[in-house]
């Protein structure tokens, strides 16, 4: 039995002859049955990240059922689930207990992780939360979380998947003075010093966004729900909350993909500079008026430049880590 036919079946594209052939093959031995069941499980599991990929086509096909996209496997955020008879629970508290350890931990310095331009990295925090760092980002955290909350600080862009702990909320502090209080959830923080705004986008769970309202002169808080994003532009007194249904393109970078959706060229260049670690030197200022819509799947810089040359009436020359735009 060839794997191609099985994959075709899993996609819902197998014809009746092929279905019959698969059924007969399964009948022959329990090994075949186990093999197929495992293949199907892997296929179904892979649907968990379906929303992270922009859909190129809007076809409404009977076979493409909505349920193929995420949900089933992510049910219990921090609890492992078995599909058979045994039940397996993962618990664990890695927090330091007792004053002796707490004192020792306080004496230790924060751990700081940097990613330079052109680097994406993944970090596991002491509580087993996971943080993906985009290029040119700095994250600091204590070697052990002690006290009432889990405090980390961030400058740059990172996607957090925070381990659930309702007794000890995580607080992410950004260099622009925002504190994001988290219980157990996944969210994206973009706060680069050289951007003119910062953005926090919630994917799952709930967070409390604390900021200083410079108009009112007091600290305020916004409670966020999934699919909401809060943008705070430099110089504004307060941030703006909006609902978005296209949030997954913001984390395409975690898979090494770049998604531009009608993005103005100044921002495109800034993102490319961070991503590839190059410098853009603009000679022809007319380029600032253009914008780019495109997705790049783990592609090298010259592919990106080729495409830009194709869509826009400019010449891009890459030499010694510098791109000149004429």
């Amino acid at each position: 039995m060839n794997k191609t036919i099985l994959i075709k079946y899993l996609k819902g594209e197998a014809g009746s002859h092929e279905v019959e052939a698969i059924a007969e093959w399964l009948d022959r031995s329990p090994e075949n049955k186990k093999y197929f069941a495992r293949l199907k499980l892997l296929w179904d599991i892979s649907g968990e990240v379906a929303e992270e990929y922009p859909r190129r086509r809007q076809k409404s096909r009977e076979r493409k059922k909505f349920w193929l996209r995420t949900g089933y496997f992510s049910a219990a955020a921090a609890v492992a689930v078995l599909l058979a008879v045994n039940i397996f629970l993962m618990t664990g508290d890695r927090r330091a207990a007792g004053t002796g350890q707490e004192q020792a931990a306080a004496a230790m310095e924060d751990v700081t992780v940097y990613t330079h331009r052109g680097v994406v990295s993944k970090v596991t925090l002491p509580d087993s939360s996971t943080v993906w760092l985009n290029a040119d980002t700095r994250l600091s955290y204590p070697p052990v979380f002690t006290g009432d909350s889990r405090r980390v600080s961030l400058s740059g862009e990172a996607f957090f998947e925070v381990a659930r702990d309702t007794l000890h909320p995580m607080v992410v502090s950004t260099d622009k003075g925002i504190d994001i209080e988290v219980l157990g959830t996944s969210f994206l923080v973009r706060s680069y010093c050289d951007d003119t705004e910062s953005e926090v986008t919630l994917f799952e769970g709930s967070v409390a966004y604390h900021y200083m309202n410079s108009g009112e002169g007091r600290k305020e808080v916004i409670r966020m729900s999934p699919n909401e994003s809060v943008v705070f532009a430099d110089g504004d007194p307060a941030p703006r909350l909006s609902y978005r249904d296209d949030i997954y393109k913001d984390i395409a970078w975690m898979d090494g993909n770049l998604v531009f959706d009608d993005m103005p060229m100044p921002e495109v260049f800034r993102i490319l500079e961070r991503w590839y670690g190059v410098e853009f030197s603009v000679v022809n200022e007319a380029v600032w008026g253009y914008s780019l819509t495109s997705t790049f799947y783990s592609e090298p810089l010259f592919s990106v430049i080729e495409l830009m040359e194709y869509c826009m009436p400019f010449e891009f020359t890459l030499e010694n880590g510098k791109v000149t735009v004429r």
């Binding site: 279905v19 049955k33 069941a37 499980l41 968990e48 496997f73 992510s74 219990a76 397996f88």
Partner: peptide, 28 residues
């Protein structure tokens, strides 16, 4: 036959020892 194949996949599915968060990490 379609339902037979589904039955096999339900009956012979291995147990999955991994949490929802880790699944997505591993997928990525």
């Amino acid at each position: 036959r379609q339902d037979y194949i589904s039955l096999v996949s339900a009956e012979y599915e291995p147990p999955l020892n991994i949490s929802g968060i880790d699944i997505r990490n591993m997928l990525r």
